[in-house]
């Protein structure tokens, strides 16, 4: 089961996650991809850098798959997250969920991406033309500035 959940440094091939969850008994396979957005609140991203605590991240992705099974029953999940440097429009995360009927697949996909943003130890660093910053929350309004000492240490430019 763990092999359905992995961190990669390579570009993500969507067929890889789809194949993991393809089963004769399902009528729906929902694919979600998270991609690198160029503009956030008017600020232009040049590229992103992702870091992960790989063994724990893979465990936590697997935990999300287990949670989905508990909530939706007959649901098979595969999730891959890419790390390293990603350019605009690159796929950062791909989730595939197969269920007998479509509603559960849609709902479970939404749950999966929300949980990734809560519990999986993966971080992204924004690279703008005027500086860089590790992003510490998903509202992207502020970084986790309270956890570290100075703006210099944040790499703010």
């Amino acid at each position: 089961m763990e092999h359905n959940f992995w961190i990669t440094e390579e570009p993500i091939a969507l067929n890889d996650v789809i194949e993991k969850v393809t089963r004769r008994e399902v009528g729906a396979i929902n694919i979600f991809t998270g991609t690198v957005r160029e503009l956030t609140d008017g600020k232009r991203t040049l590229f992103l850098e992702y870091d992960a605590y790989k063994p724990m991240a893979e465990k936590k992705l697997a935990q999300i798959g287990q949670e989905i099974k508990e909530k939706w029953g007959d649901a098979e999940t595969a999730i891959v997250h890419r790390v390293g440097r990603l350019d605009i429009s690159d796929v950062a995360v791909a989730i595939a969920i197969s269920t007998p009927h479509r509603k559960a697949a849609f709902a479970a996909s939404s749950y999966a991406i929300d949980r990734i943003k809560e519990i999986v130890p993966i971080w992204k660093k924004e690279h703008w033309s005027d500086g860089t910053q590790w992003i510490g929350d998903q509202k992207e309004r502020h970084s986790y500035d309270k956890g570290i000492p100075t703006e210099e240490a944040m790499g703010n430019g």
Partner: peptide
């Protein structure tokens, strides 16, 4: 032990 700042995957 891993110190895990607020995560921002996805």
């Amino acid at each position: 032990v891993a110190f895990i700042p607020p995560v921002s995957g996805g």
